[in-house]
Design a binder for these strands. Structure first.
Lengths: 230, 230
DNA sequence: GCTGCTGTTTTACGATCGTTCAATTAGAGC
DNA sequence: GCTCTAATTGAACGATCGTAAAACAGCAGC
């Protein structure tokens, strides 16, 4: 299940019209292409796809080019992680921005979370590999701290609009605590469902995942409304 | 952050009393020791710890011994994964077996899920690495199918006892569907909280995690009792 | 004490790893 | 068309990888 030994596209044959052997690109574009190749390799081969040669072959460049644009492999992987995070958060933020009511925004957020391109076994497996790198890679930790903040912010905004913003009601303190736990719980629920989908794609339907999450939020609403014990 | 080059305990010095240079062990015991060493390497070095030389050094044996007891590295790793799964399920099952009432059993299950040795950043990181291997390793997939069954069975029993067993009530069909989704949701919640603890140990308190899970189950109970819309 | 089996070590092999660096050359600017 | 910058190539390095196989040696049985 390792990446194939040689996957590079055939080099330009010595045709009569002498085509350039490679194309120069702006560092910015080349870095983006290398990051895209890294993610593609992760999707195809998992952790084993994270080798300089596999990635450069996927990108159609030589082995030396990566170290010209990135100081080392870890930074390339961290760059791919950053891109992956940004794509997710931007997509979810855009989906949740359209609807007018708080409930519809949360629903749009959840539906985006459980539909392509996010609910894809390959994509979710990439997340898991990144998470597996987290504990022993400083660059990954740094990116996580950078980008996770946005995700938490988005989720707390959505939940706050539904549960009543802290300071908007009478008992601001109690609700602030609930908001923190609510964000932790909903994040865990989504990540956990993603993980289950990764281990067994199709084990549930996207609608069911949304329903599970909405059920959790409704329980929160009931409790926030003082519906405390049956 | 790679494993150190040499980590083997110093070889027996040429003392006057000629001690044997190694001890023979029964294959069963040696395999267990190698699996324990594999897990220890995973805790210390993450995915990079999964090398024959790192593991054999950790176990205090030579490089060739692993391939004498396991057909290849993947099978050793799968064996470690099986052991890891069994330890978890056995521990949770034992914890959930003691109390007399269904609610107390579920609480004991949750408290065991969110206390040592399960709620440990190193242990949880090992889970994530295993999950990351899942998609591209047949042996890991096989072990997952073998052992995950027990976990799901345990959780469905606990939830079934609380929500009312299918066939025990009047509307068995509807409740059976709920039980499936309930197990999916609670599993996702626990796994997701584990993941969050792995990425940020101490981000919440164990009591809070238990409370979040119990809150989810209470919401299920309300809905199962026909408490459908506010 | 010797024998035999088998668990264990040791050595070696070819492959692949990340990184370096001198040589090459694409392509913009003049 | 020429020059010059710098993006790119490709070979080479030493290290480490997983595995095979022969040599060694612990230790039970006689």
């Amino acid at each position: 299940m390792r990446p194939p030994a040689a996957a590079a596209p055939a080099p330009a044959p010595p045709a009569e019209a002498r085509r350039p052997r490679f194309q120069r690109q702006l560092p910015q574009q080349r870095r983006a292409a290398l990051i895209a190749a890294t993610i593609e390799c992760l999707k195809r081969y998992g952790h084993d796809g994270l080798s300089i040669r596999t990635i450069s072959a996927q990108a159609g460049v030589s082995v030396g080019l990566i170290n010209h644009h990135f100081p080392n492999k870890d930074e390339l992987v961290a760059g791919a992680f950053r891109h992956f995070n940004r794509e997710l958060v931007d997509g979810l933020k855009a989906a949740a921005a359209r609807p007018a009511t708080p409930a519809a925004r949360l629903r749009a957020f959840l539906e985006a979370s459980f539909s392509p391109p996010n609910l894809d076994a390959d994509v979710l497996a990439v997340w898991v590999v990144f998470w597996g790198l987290y504990r022993h890679s400083r660059p990954i930790q740094r990116v996580q701290r950078e980008t996770y903040r946005d995700y938490v912010q988005l989720m707390r905004t959505l939940l706050g609009d539904i549960l009543g913003k802290p300071g908007g009601g009478a008992r601001g303190r109690g609700r602030a605590v609930n908001l923190r736990l609510a964000a932790i719980g909903l994040t865990a629920l989504i990540d956990g469902l993603w993980l289950e989908w990764c281990l067994e794609p199709g084990g549930f339907r996207p609608r069911e995942a949304v329903a599970i999450c909405e059920g959790w939020v409704e329980g929160l609403q009931r409790r926030a409304a003082g519906w405390n014990s049956p």
